[in-house]
Design a protein around this nucleic acid. Sequence first.
DNA 1: GAGATTTGACCTAA
DNA 2: TTAGGTCAAATCTC
Length: 244
Amino acid sequence: MAKGRLSAQELVHQIFTSFDHSISLLTSAESVEVSQNQAISYYDSLVRRDPSPRKREAVIKEAEQTWTVASATVEDGHAWRKYGQKQILNSGHPRGYFRCTRKYDQGCKATKQVQRMDDGSQMYQITYMGTHTCRPDSFKAPQIISDSESWQSYKMVTFINSDIPSNTTTMKQEVKEETTTTTSGLTDLGSVIMWKDIIGADYRDVVSNVYSSTEITSRNWELDLVMKPVEFEEYFEFDESELL
DNA sequence: GAGATTTGACCTAA
DNA sequence: TTAGGTCAAATCTC
């Protein structure tokens, strides 16, 4: 296909890509703020037990690598193996424990916990712990961003933030367009958040910004902003012959 | 037969 | 002692 020219199939694919991405953003953003206080309390308790600088640094690192999302589906593009299930006190649904299927052959330490929400919304609260260190080719969907020369630590989260508070001086954020190639050979543009220079930030900043970003998303984002991830060529031309 | 899931037992922290 | 997390044997599925 010549530059600037899209077939009907490609157009439909890009429209569905945009809808799929938008829906996942919206579903991931709901109900997350409920967990913010719980997360901060958890990290508070860890620092209270051992307030040494080393412990504080470890807590910040853990806060960076642990995040919770609410989702309508447990599917996230990664291959997980369930290793346990537990009925949780005062919860109507059991909690499932999953680890990356590459834990033993590639030493990947990523785990997640999945629990149905009790509000009857058919949503799942999914807590991810640790980032995937297994090879990208083992994913069904891309996860690793490679253009990271000067960035000390990347964190890819599943929701979009448009306004991280500026009072955290060492934390910077950027919304970046990630370009990947789908199985059909099309270019798939999806927005992700990548955090850099997070070292030096307080664990409360880390936790608060992760959660507040989703709150902003769910309350303030207009549909056209959510739809922004898919961009067409400037001189887009519809190929009607493909409709036959 | 290999890999995934289930589930009771065990471990650990509070 | 209790609750949450993990282990591992039994079972299931392809």
